[in-house]
Nucleic acid binder design. Structure first.
Lengths: 190, 190
DNA sequence: GTCTATAAACTGATAGAC
DNA sequence: GTCTATCAGTTTATAGAC
């Protein structure tokens, strides 16, 4: 074991970090290759086109979240929601990285079809999971809110996304914490 | 009167609509010129560089909001907040346009300095105005919330931005309404 | 698997005619 | 003010040597 990471994975890692910071169209094969010390033409061996790379990238990003959420199954709804927010806190970095799909959502109309579909699938996963957890939390008396659970989930997710954009724009990472803490508190029962 | 709109204004209008839909880097001088039936080189006469156009664009966008907010001075805090949301509803279109600065915020690190500063100024305006209205509403008993008014304003603005991204990504404009309605309701006193 | 070389298209931008 | 012509730089992508 202890084998070194394969090039395909390292390409996805580099592309992910760059796109989280700059967006899909502002990142080129040349930018990605430089992080690995290879030429841009070599990337086409691993990913025939940028669309392939983009779609694979978002798919991996979603599957990673799926695994994280599955590992939370045994916790209480309140704990699960806290760990969900913690997962997002981990993708926010001081160098300007925020959630990959928040950045891609802003480029929606210019994304290649396959990439856009993966982004939509990511948000669907978030909405479905949040709806379930929030509903379960209310049934157990831990959460309190009016209206359909799905709408409460939309509000939670929208606030989470906006928090990352605002925190980065204001150069104040602490703002992400302030907003998400209040967002979780708003759901809690008195 | 009834003079036709000057070219500079029409260029700003075209650029605004295109960038709201596609983002800053995905819109070229050629794209903008085509909407007016002129060549891309002609645009440089009105705006020497793309940075000049971008900064002027966001400045106008902010000043327009400033005027809208000033016209709301006589209303109650609850009414002012409703009209604020209505102003945002007006920039959301079925063709994929959302708030100009929400799109630009996602491209933050790749924006020319002057454009980025104008975007930050736009959010500062929103935060300051919301903080004031929310605080006044609480003093009058119309709103209810815990903690600093500035933080409640951050949450409101973050939710508003995220709502536009989610509504567009899901191809469901109604989602913007659902989210913002709940966002306003959350502030209201029982 | 990675390289060099190259293509074809596009970008923001400038010079100068009209 | 808008045009044509042009530039230098960039992009994604391909062909073929090693």
């Amino acid at each position: 074991m202890s084998e070194q990471t394969d090039t395909r994975t390292r390409l996805l890692d580099a592309a992910e970090q760059l796109i989280q910071e700059r967006g899909y169209h502002a990142v080129s094969y040349k930018d990605i290759g430089e992080r690995l010390g290879i030429r841009n033409a070599s990337i086409h061996y691993h990913f025939p086109g940028k669309t392939d790379l983009g779609a694979a990238l978002v798919r991996r990003y979603r599957e990673r979240l799926e695994q994280t959420l599955e590992s939370l199954g045994a916790l209480s709804p309140a704990r699960r929601l806290e760990q969900y927010v913690a997962a997002y806190r981990r993708v926010v970095h001081e160098d300007g990285r925020i959630c990959l799909c928040t950045v891609l959502a802003a480029e929606d109309s210019t994304l290649p079809g396959p990439v856009r579909q993966e982004v939509r699938a990511f948000f669907d996963l978030n909405e479905d999971w949040l709806t379930h957890v929030i509903n379960e939390g209310r049934a157990q008396g831990a959460f309190q809110f009016s209206g359909p659970p799905a709408e409460a989930a939309w509000v939670f997710l929208a606030t989470l996304e906006g928090a990352m954009l605002l925190a980065r724009s204001s150069r104040d990472p602490g703002r992400f914490e302030s907003i998400t803490c209040r967002s979780v508190d708003a759901l809690r029962s008195a």
